[in-house]
Nucleic acid binder design. Structure first.
Lengths: 188, 188
DNA sequence: TTTATTACTGAACATATTGTTCGATTACGA
DNA sequence: TCGTAATCGAACAATATGTTCAGTAATAAA
């Protein structure tokens, strides 16, 4: 990729995230992003069609990083030899999220949070889908899957504003409150 | 209140909700609301400062209706003689929400959904706050309270798009998946 | 019924934002 | 070095926002 493109993209991301720390998503104008990134107006629009597209791109970039190992392991059907452990995976994801906290906090603390959460849940569905015990319960499995996804996503959202807990603690909270009996293995 | 004001307010609410059924919140312009409500431009702005204020007012109106009995019972410390029953209350709330489904669905199916959910959760916190067993668990009570509020709010959101279940069924789903042991009484 | 008050109207206005276009300039990689 | 590709930025049309104000109509209360 052209060095200039990379530079421009990064400048936009930096400008955008720093603005998100100061004001809400809908109050940020494209012009402000342009000014702060110090790029030409038409340059911005040659990279991103709208402000929403920019946010989407930023979310995708964060999640591709956060979930990279998990999803690749998923795709390769776990031939790695290491036993797949859902609680370990969750903790691992939490560590990645912790690394990106400054970004994520600012995205979450505004209306853009919903967009972030939507993408987040899409990734989480892939993680949890295989972990559900689909036979045991008389509760609809679509409900159960959604339940786990919401619960984890909201746990993370809460965590981002309650920093004092470790990934391990958060993981424990999650597994203690989301019924263990809904998982293939019981973690209660 | 002046009859004209009431009429204007209702016209705006009607125009707004009907627009929400067709397009997303951020794509609705104030001008469209004005045109559909068939009122003067300055009239709208004398009632609502912004589009966000309008949404907020609409949410408040819906929730004041949905939660009216619950909160008044709360406030009067339940001298009504009837035993307070959290599961019954939940089912009752679900019936009210079912009555408003057409409104709520359209609000939820857009970015305005987050605003709706935020207000919804504020009301739910009042309902659940007194029901938590604060001594039993080693999990932070703020986490537990949030957990129950999210879970119920998201259950409702899911329900609004999966109509085929009754309030009683939804109530059961909720109490089966949210650990009963977190409540003062065990409903498992 | 009369009267004072209050709400509504709608045109006009200033301001701001969006997204596009295009010719000129600059940086890139091969 | 040279062709390609990215950037620049001014100018533009198109919309949307929120305010103002003088005129009109409905309302409640006396």
């Amino acid at each position: 990729m052209d060095r200039r493109q990379k530079k421009t993209r990064q400048a936009v991301y930096d400008a955008f995230t720093s603005l998100l720390e100061k004001k809400s998503y809908s109050n940020i104008t494209v012009q402000e992003i342009i000014d702060r990134a110090d790029i030409g107006r038409s340059t911005f629009y040659s990279h991103f069609e709208t402000k929403d597209e920019l946010l989407k791109a930023l979310c995708t970039e964060i999640f591709d990083h956060v979930f990279s190992e998990n999803l690749s392991r998923e795709r390769t059907h776990d031939f790695s030899g290491t036993e797949k452990n859902i609680e370990g995976e969750i903790t691992h994801i939490l560590y990645h999220l912790q690394d990106n906290r400054s970004y994520i906090r600012s995205i979450l603390s505004s209306e853009s949070g919903e967009i972030f959460m939507r993408y987040f849940k899409e990734y989480l569905e892939q993680i949890f889908d295989g972990e559900l015990d689909r036979s045991a319960s008389d509760i609809p499995k679509e409900y159960m899957l959604n339940h786990m996804v919401w619960d984890f996503a909201e746990t993370v959202r809460w965590w981002m504003n309650n920093v004092s807990y470790s990934p391990e603690e958060i993981s424990r909270f999650f597994f203690r409150t989301t019924l263990g009996s809904n998982l293939k293995k019981d973690f209660s």
